[in-house]
Amino acid sequence: MANLLEVKNIETYYDLVYAIRGASLAVEEGSITAILGNNGAGKSTILKTIMGQIEDQPDKGIIEFNGKPIQHIDTDKIVRKGIAYVPEGREIFDELTVHEHLLMGAYTRKDSEEIKQDIDQVFKYFPVLKNRTNQWAGTLSGGEQQMLAIGRALMLRPRLLLLDEPSLGLSPILVKEIFSIIQEINSKGTTILLVEQNANMALSISSTGLILENGRFVMKGKSKDLLEDKDVKEFYLGIKSETSAKGYQRWKRKKAWR
């Protein structure tokens, strides 16, 4: 299938901090693609760059959605093209209710009948939210807020969904649940680009995996191959092998992977 999203050799700066140093990736329509990498590798920065959230960035490179360039245009226009984004750390509205969040998630849509159906669909994915319909989002638990952030993004009916560490701070059972919901969303036709620390989970639901280090992708491949890869096993899945490979050795003590 064709690529829905193509990122070609982008470079991103935060003022003088050179965060993304020439990164390319392609997300095939209908797939789940996972980006893995250490803390500070630049995973979130890539998603923020795609969403146009960093002023005047990318400094270099092209981002194409559905064959058309989307770099250097306003975030709201990118959203209108059909890209939804669940940022790191939820970013909810403390003093809007759960119901208002879902309405706002459909802000760019006009089909009110179908919006109602989609709200019901979100409640089917996340039944806990239904009991909290009229509660302020700021008073939800962290996990509930994460579900709300995903639900709000789904209300766009996006073609592409960007997820930044959806499993962060969730209990192991909930992590499993969220990942199975992500799979279900994908099976209904939404393409997904997933950033994760939970490499095992991410690789097991995705078709393609990319590994980011210091603002560059150092490895790309089919997820099932990456799961078997010796280096990935050692540094990202926490499975020890006797002989450790080349330069990765120095990362050993720093690894933060489950």
Partner: peptide, 24 residues
């Protein structure tokens, strides 16, 4: 109203407002 909610949303979290398509 939708616009009224969007105004409240913009005030509470302008990043979140932008990423759901509000022209803040």
């Amino acid at each position: 109203s939708k616009l009224g909610l969007a105004m409240k949303a913009t005030q509470q979290n302008s990043v979140a407002a932008q990423i759901i398509g509000i022209r803040t």
